[in-house]
């Protein structure tokens, strides 16, 4: 059992309340991703779960045991850091064996576990190298390998891909997805600001905003039924069009749900972004913000065109003046 239960968790840094009354239930074996803008508290929440930060209030349970006062080393967790945090003076093998050596595990067991993790992550040829002799992607794999060797109940990732270039990020993302499949019993909690990572990897996503949980749900639930204006604007790229009415309510419509060519509404194409497979047209419809429309390659209009558009009513999201979903 490695479920995580967070009840009324608060975290203060001096007078500043960084996490406010967080409640979360993460099931055993689940892959949960925390997303949110910079400073929303997602990394702090992860560090509270890890034990690197003490919580200021509330309760934190891992595997049914309250761990508020349990040190990080006794929580049965492993963590992959954004900067990899590999020990520079140790070889890859020593980095991976470090936690087991601290536990005074038998030498043969350490060797077997390190070799096993190295094979899983294609690190076998690099075991005797030092971190400085590895590329960014290899370092990240060593950091993951170091965590695997511990055979943790809970795996924590703090923005593990943000130091990698775009191509490597895609490759490592796939590796993490495969890793999750190979460790079905291990609960994984992952922090990122990258929506693609969140949408592709997560069983469930937790959207945080200003130290509070905005919404928890599967990627599909968050995308299809955002419960607040914040989630609507945050999840999805390009972001949802949010059209404000005079009474303070807001109508939201995803760029791909708008059909150009016919319909009761009209707008002028202000500019077009070509992305290859599809393109984004930005229409001036007389509001403060331009209306974003996602089009396939063949249907892209020209800048300056005045076009008609429409959208299916059932695809419209409505929010009240307080920014909460109404339909």
């Amino acid at each position: 059992m490695s479920d995580i239960k967070v009840t009324n968790l608060r975290k203060n840094f001096g007078a500043v309340e960084v996490l406010k009354d967080i409640n979360l239930d993460i099931r055993s074996g689940e892959f949960v991703i925390f997303v949110g803008p910079s400073g929303c508290g997602k990394s702090t929440l992860l560090r509270c779960i890890s034990g690197l930060e003490r919580i200021s209030g509330g309760a934190l349970e891992i595997g049914g045991r309250v761990v508020n006062n349990v040190p990080a080393s006794k929580r049965g967790i492993a963590m992959v850091f954004q900067s990899y945090a590999l020990y520079p003076h140790m070889s890859v093998r020593e980095n991976m064996a470090y936690s087991m050596k601290l536990r005074r595990a038998p030498k043969t067991e350490i060797e077997v576990r390190v070799a096993d993790a190295a094979r899983k992550l294609q690190l076998a040829p690099y075991l005797d190298r030092y971190p400085r002799e590895l590329s960014g992607g290899q370092r990240q794999r060593v950091a993951i390998g170091r965590a695997i060797v511990r055979d943790p109940q809970v795996f924590l990732f703090d923005e593990p891909l943000s130091n990698l270039d775009a191509a490597l990020r895609v490759a490592t993302r796939l590796e993490i997805a495969r890793l999750k499949e190979s460790l079905p019993q291990t609960t994984m909690v992952y922090v990122t600001h990258d929506q693609v990572e969140a949408m592709t990897l997560a069983d469930r996503i937790v959207v945080l905003n200003a130290g509070r949980v905005e919404q928890v749900g599967t990627p599909e639930e968050l995308y299809e039924r955002p419960q607040s204006l914040f989630v609507a604007g945050f999840i999805g790229s390009p972001k949802m069009n949010l059209l404000k009415a005079e009474d303070g309510t807001t109508t939201g419509i995803r760029p791909e749900d708008i059909n150009l060519g016919s319909g009761p509404h009209r707008g002028k194409v202000a500019y077009v972004e070509y992305l290859g497979a599809d393109s984004y047209a930005f229409l001036d419809i007389g509001q403060d913000e331009l209306l974003t429309v996602r089009q396939t390659r063949s249907e892209t209009p020209q800048v300056g065109d005045v076009v008609s558009y429409d959208y299916p009513v059932e695809r419209v999201h409505r929010f009240d003046a307080q920014g909460m979903r109404v339909n």
């Binding site: 034990g51 080393s73 601290l102």
Partner: peptide, 18 residues
Amino acid sequence: VPRELEEASIIDGSSQIG
């Protein structure tokens, strides 16, 4: 020396002094 190195060591099972 990045603090994260010590934090990684603490998670790996050592104390702060360790």
